[in-house]
């Protein structure tokens, strides 16, 4: 595992998300109203909707395709739906954001 710098906190809109493209797929990085940052695979367990395009509220995001609500903390689907998104550790070092990726994800490094 290794920490990879992905950008600055202010690059992500408040209550919004940006994407990080890796060889293994897209990772969504979310910023909440309280400036907390979360990351998970950009794929809803329901029909693979891009969660990064959803509306962020509290510590949840609502998928744009069929309104599943996913917890940003646990990656678990809320309410009657069941499913799990893989979360990824993210760190905020004085505004610099770092993502914990496997060796494989950062490839040749």
């Amino acid at each position: 595992m290794t920490w990879v710098t992905i950008g600055r906190l202010e690059d992500i809109p408040v209550r919004g998300a940006r994407c990080v493209n890796t060889p293994e797929g897209r990772i969504a990085v979310f910023r909440t109203a309280d400036n907390e940052v979360f990351a998970m695979e950009d794929s809803c367990p329901h029909k693979r909707g891009p969660l990064s395009q959803g509306i962020v509220h509290g510590k949840s995001v609502t998928c744009p395709l069929h309104n599943w609500v996913i917890s940003l903390e646990s990656g678990a689907a809320q309410g009657a739906d069941s499913g799990q998104v893989r979360t990824i550790s993210v760190r905020n070092d004085n505004g610099t954001l770092l993502l914990e990726l496997t060796e494989l994800r950062v490839a040749a490094e």
Binding site: I6, T22, P23, V29, A108
Partner: peptide, 17 residues
């Protein structure tokens, strides 16, 4: 602008080298 671009693309260039 941020809406239409990924924050960063990582891993690919290293792999290609």
């Amino acid at each position: 602008k941020h809406e239409f671009k990924p924050l960063v693309v990582t891993g690919f260039s290293e792999a290609a080298e």
